[in-house]
Amino acid sequence: MSLGPVEYMVIEFPGNQFKGEIIPALREVVDAGIIRIIDLVFVRKDDQGNVSVMELADLQKDAADAFAPLAREASTLFAEEDVEKVSEVMEDNSSVALLLFEHVWATKFRDAVLAADGRLIAGERIPKERVDAALAWRPAEQEALGAAP
């Protein structure tokens, strides 16, 4: 089995107030075949700094039922060390969802690049804040140069 590009993401919810608002958006990209969830782990840190780890099967029934269709192919690939690293940077009294997912959308492109004897030599995810700053700066620069935005 050949996977497309794989990425992990750690999403923190301060105050241990995860209410499931991300589920519809996540469901949309999974159902559309844009991503496939490979692993999903939840980590909770109380206000004393005590950490508990939960797999999908460990969640309360309503939460487990909401996530189950999204992670039906999930396996346990995150190592204990991964969870430890995440718990070290988490704020007290917060929860995180630790996602490992495949970019299914990129598989055809990857195969085309490989068929053309191409290879990826660099890549980086650019944080939203940097993109926003660049977009905010660009129109001002164009106006200063006398170009139309």
Rank of each mutant, 00 (worst) to 15 (best):
Arg110Met: 15
Ala71Asp: 02
Ile121Asp: 06
Thr76Leu: 13
Thr107Asp: 07
Ala71Lys: 05
Asp82Ser: 01
Leu99Glu: 11
Leu120Pro: 06
Gly146Trp: 01
Ile126His: 09
Ile22Gly: 06
Glu88His: 11
Leu26Val: 14
Ile35His: 06
Glu28Gly: 11
Ala57Trp: 05
Val53Leu: 05
Gly123Gln: 12
Leu98Ser: 01
Glu81Lys: 11
Glu73Met: 08
Asp47Trp: 10
Val104Ala: 07
Gly20Ser: 00
Arg72Phe: 11
Val30Asp: 03
Glu129Gly: 06
Asn50Glu: 13
Asp31His: 10
Tyr8Met: 09
Gly146Arg: 01
Ala63His: 12
Thr76Ile: 05
Val89Pro: 01
Asp92His: 14
Ala79His: 15
Leu135Cys: 08
Val83Asn: 05
Glu141Asn: 11
Leu56Gly: 08
Phe42Asp: 00
Val41Lys: 07
Pro24Arg: 06
Ala79Gln: 15
Val104Ser: 09
Asp65Ser: 06
Leu56Lys: 03
Ala79Ile: 08
Ile37Leu: 07
Gly49Lys: 02
Arg72Ile: 07
Val51Leu: 00
Val6Arg: 07
Asn93Ser: 07
Val43Ile: 14
Ile121Glu: 08
Ala147Ser: 12
Lys128Asp: 08
Val43Thr: 01
Gly15Asn: 00
Val41Arg: 04
Leu56Cys: 06
Ile22Asp: 10
Ile11Met: 09
Ala68Cys: 02
Arg130Gln: 15
Val89Asp: 02
Glu28Phe: 08
Ile35Cys: 07
Val86Pro: 00
Val96Asn: 02
His103Ser: 10
Ala136Met: 12
Asn93His: 09
Pro127Cys: 03
Leu40Asp: 04
Glu84Cys: 03
Leu100Tyr: 06
Val104Gly: 01
Ala134Glu: 13
Met54Leu: 14
Ser2Glu: 15
Met90Val: 04
Pro127Val: 03
Val83Ala: 04
Val83Gly: 05
Ala115Lys: 13
Pro69Asn: 05
